[in-house]
Design a protein around this nucleic acid. Structure first.
Lengths: 128, 128
DNA sequence: CGATGAATTGACTTTTACGTAAATCAGGTG
DNA sequence: CACCTGATTTACGTAAAAGTCAATTCATCG
């Protein structure tokens, strides 16, 4: 496992622009270290980027992604904070479960649509 | 089952604004009938709205939602079109499967995060 | 040493998905 | 009829998430 990645390496790996990476940094989602002014991304930063993009694909906003990322970090030291955190996590899970329902419903309707197409083809005497 | 719904009925049912419904109409996603200038939504329109909102929650853009909705409609009459349609459907399914992977991965990381919290609580001598 | 190519910062622009305001209209009610 | 309520149209505004462009800096290779 490499120690550092450059910004362009990550843009290529993930198919995003440097602007996007810097934007996520401005938004406080990642914190690459610097050598001079140049950003160096650690494996942990790289993994964060992966998580961010996952959130993006799932339609979460930057601030929602920020909240999810908070959760991934080391657990807090105080008992009250820990309970709050667990509560937050459950909340996130609810959102994801809603999305999963939406997803399964959509998949099912796609199946139905395909079936209709296949039937129509059969009616037209096309062999499948 | 009701024959028609007014625009405000739908806004209340789905928790969206009239602006949003009219916007979706401008975008060609729905086509309520009219009595005079007033929009009347049929059960089929209502179902479309439900599908649109599902797509929205999953992070699809309007044009992606438009494509998905196309697929839900009655299958085309021509063989070539039918094959194209089936191809499109498979494509959509791929996108949804990607989202499902993202979703499961995120859920798993949330589980890990929660476990870390619980362990930390245990270390602090808090009974669960 | 000079040029070349990657990286940075900052400012401005764009696209998407609506929000909001103003003016108008239709239809029921007292 | 005056009025109110709910709907419509038109037009402009806006926040989020980047894209784009320009000016600079910096390292390093020949």
């Amino acid at each position: 496992m490499r120690e550092y990645y450059t910004i362009t390496e990550l843009t290529r790996e993930f198919g995003i622009s440097t602007r996007t990476l810097r934007f996520y940094e401005d938004e406080g989602l990642i914190n690459p270290v610097r050598r001079g002014r140049t950003r160096l991304y650690r494996p942990s930063d790289r993994h964060l980027v992966r998580q961010i993009l996952r959130g993006r694909r799932l339609g979460f906003s930057i601030s929602e992604i920020r909240e999810i990322i908070q959760v991934y970090k080391a657990p807090p030291g105080e008992v009250g904070q820990l309970h709050l955190m667990i509560q937050k996590i459950e909340e996130k899970r609810q959102h994801l479960r809603q999305k999963r329902r939406d997803l399964e419903d959509t998949l099912q309707e796609l199946d139905q649509a395909e079936e209709a197409c296949v039937e129509r083809l059969a009616e037209l005497g096309v062999k499948t």
